[in-house]
């Protein structure tokens, strides 16, 4: 465990809490993609299946439970809460699950470290996490005016991924024999998806303007 990894995990947690608090306080989920949230829930469940038998550390286990719990709450709010669900922008959140889930499923069957069910599900979760933000980015693009909290949510998520890359660089430099190609490549692709958003986020911040994405 190094500081980059720790900062990444905290930023990830913070991003989820920002979103959850926004929904809870405003009773609105306008601008939030339910597709992305459900994909993240699928990511966490398929990756953390090992929660009950593959104990690594209390730190990891607590984070796993918290990620699954908080993301479930977001999905619950968006689908079931009587006021929140009315604010869900379903007309714009039209990205198809299948476009992301099917290629990731096929890829995890073809490229994995070991051919068994849990390894394949874990690999699937790595691939799916890389692209799960896409419905959210598409929704932001469509609605143009991004409210501050939604913008901060995506920014924190991107920052979390950036810190994971620093963590890998650090580990590669300090741990002999450390390599994780599958995770690295997926992680680089995932972080790359945020670059465009980052550019506009920083521009808006520098000019103290409201974040607006170009069409």
């Amino acid at each position: 465990m190094n500081l980059f990894r720790f900062a990444g995990d905290i930023l990830h947690l913070l991003s989820i809490l920002v979103l959850l608090l926004k929904i809870h306080a405003t009773k609105s989920c306008a601008g939030i993609s339910l597709k992305t949230q459900e994909l993240y829930l699928a990511v966490f469940i398929t990756r953390y299946l090992d929660l009950f038998w593959n104990f690594h550390s209390l730190y990891n286990s607590v984070f796993k439970v918290v990620y699954i719990g908080t993301t479930s709450m977001i999905v619950w709010y968006m689908r079931r809460h009587r006021n929140v669900k009315l604010t869900y922008d379903r007309d714009h959140d039209t990205f198809r699950y299948l476009f992301l889930v099917a290629p990731c499923a096929v890829l995890s069957l073809l490229i994995n470290a070991r051919y068994n069910l849990f390894e394949i599900l874990w690999t699937f979760s790595i691939y799916l996490e890389a692209v799960a933000i896409l419905p959210q980015l598409v929704l932001l693009q469509r609605t143009k005016n991004v409210d501050n909290l939604t913008g901060n949510y995506v920014f924190l998520l991107g920052l979390y991924r950036a810190f994971y890359i620093l963590n890998w660089v650090y580990r590669f430099a300090t741990e002999p024999g450390y390599s994780a190609w599958l995770v690295w490549i997926s992680g680089l692709i995932q972080t790359g998806l945020y670059l465009d958003f980052f550019y506009y986020y920083v521009q808006a911040w520098k000019q103290s303007k409201k974040l607006q994405l170009p069409s």
Partner: peptide, 10 residues
Amino acid sequence: DQKSYDKDEL
């Protein structure tokens, strides 16, 4: 068995 470093991350 290979070391599965990758599984120690979240």
